[in-house]
C-alpha cells in the first residue's frame, strides 16, 4: 500500500499526471472512488478486498477527463477494462498511467498497454463453476420456461441504468435506449421494456464484456445480470475462439471475416 501511495504522490508531484483515480474510505464499511490531485490527498488511498468498483468507468467520463491526465489504481478487473477500452480506441499509451495491483495487493507498474496485455495473458477470464452450472440449467429449460424465468428475474428492474452507468464499456454518450427515431427500445419499465433493455445491453457487450461484474454490483435491486453477460462470454468463446480483451484482435460482433463459417454473412 505504501508503495502505491508513494508512486501516486510522485506522479502528481512531478506533474506526470494531474489526478489519481483510486479507492478511499467510504460510508460505513464501504470504499469509494477518490480523485487525488495532490500528494497529500494520496495518503487517503487504500486497497483491500472491499475495493470492487471498476474504476475504469471514470476514464471516459467528461467530468474526470477535464481534470487532466489520470493515473488509475487498477486491480485485475480494471486492467481488463483498460485493455478493452484501448482496443476500442478510447485510451492510448499516452492518455493514462496504470498503477496495477496484483491479486496479492502488490503494485505492478506497466510500461505500456501492451505490457498489460502480456500480463493479462497469464490471467485468463474463467467463468466459475457455480455460474456455469446455473447457466447450463437455464439453457436447458424449455423456451417458455426460460422466458418466464427471465421475466421474473428482470421484474424488479426499474431502469435506473446503474448497470450501464457502472460499466466501463458503456461509454456511449447517447445509449440506444435514448434514441427515439426510431424508438428501438421501450422507455417504460414493464416486462417487455425490461427484457428489451437487458437483452440489448448484453448484445452490445458481447465479445467486449470483461466479466468484472460491475453491472451486478451496481444494481440496487440485486438482479443477477451477470448470468446474461457470463453466458454471452461463454457463447463468444465457444463460437469465436478464445476470449479476452486484446489490442490485436478485432471485436467479435463488429468485425467481418470473408472466411466466416456462416454462409449468410458472406
Amino acid at each position: 500500500m505504501k508503495e502505491l501511495i508513494q508512486k501516486a504522490a510522485s506522479l502528481l508531484e512531478t506533474n506526470v499526471v494531474q489526478v489519481v483515480i483510486g479507492y478511499g474510505k467510504g460510508s460505513a464499511d464501504r470504499t469509494r472512488a477518490i480523485f487525488s490531485t495532490t500528494a497529500a490527498d494520496c495518503e487517503q488511498l487504500i486497497f483491500d478486498s472491499r475495493c470492487i468498483q471498476n474504476l475504469a468507468v471514470y476514464l471516459t467520463k467528461a467530468e474526470i477527463k477535464k481534470m487532466g491526465k489520470p493515473a488509475i489504481v487498477a486491480p485485475l478487473p480494471v486492467l481488463r477494462s483498460i485493455l478493452q477500452l484501448a482496443a476500442e480506441n478510447q485510451i492510448t499509451d499516452d492518455s493514462l498511467v496504470v498503477l496495477g495491483v496484483s491479486p496479492e495487493s502488490e503494485l505492478i507498474e506497466f510500461e505500456s498497454l501492451a505490457a498489460i496485455e502480456t500480463y493479462l495473458a497469464t490471467k485468463q477470464i474463467a467463468i466459475e463453476e457455480k455460474y456455469q452450472t446455473t447457466i447450463k440449467a437455464i439453457k436447458a429449460m424449455p423456451v417458455s420456461e426460460r422466458f418466464a424465468y427471465w421475466v421474473k428475474e428482470l421484474e424488479p428492474c426499474f431502469k435506473c441504468y446503474a448497470c450501464r452507468a457502472a460499466c466501463p464499456l458503456c461509454y456511449c454518450t447517447r445509449c440506444t435506449v435514448e434514441n427515439n427515431q426510431p424508438q428501438w427500445i421501450s422507455v417504460a419499465s414493464h416486462s417487455l421494456g425490461n427484457l428489451e433493455w437487458h437483452i440489448m445491453r448484453a448484445m452490445h457487450l458481447a465479445g467486449r464484456c470483461t466479466d468484472c461484474e460491475a453491472c451486478y454490483n451496481a444494481c440496487p435491486m440485486g438482479i443477477p445480470i451477470y448470468l446474461l453477460t457470463k453466458s454471452m462470454l461463454q457463447d463468444v468463446s465457444e463460437n469465436f475462439g478464445t476470449y479476452g480483451p486484446s489490442l490485436h484482435r478485432d471485436n467479435t460482433l463488429s468485425s467481418f471475416n470473408p472466411d466466416d463459417k456462416e454462409s449468410f454473412i458472406r
Binding site: V57, A165, A218
Partner: peptide, 17 residues
C-alpha cells in the same frame, strides 16, 4: 457540488429508491 459528485456515475438509482 462538483467535489461531492465527482464519483457520481449519472444513473438513477438514488432517485428510484
Amino acid at each position: 457540488w462538483d467535489e461531492k459528485s465527482r464519483a457520481c456515475l449519472g444513473c438513477g438509482s438514488c432517485a428510484y429508491v
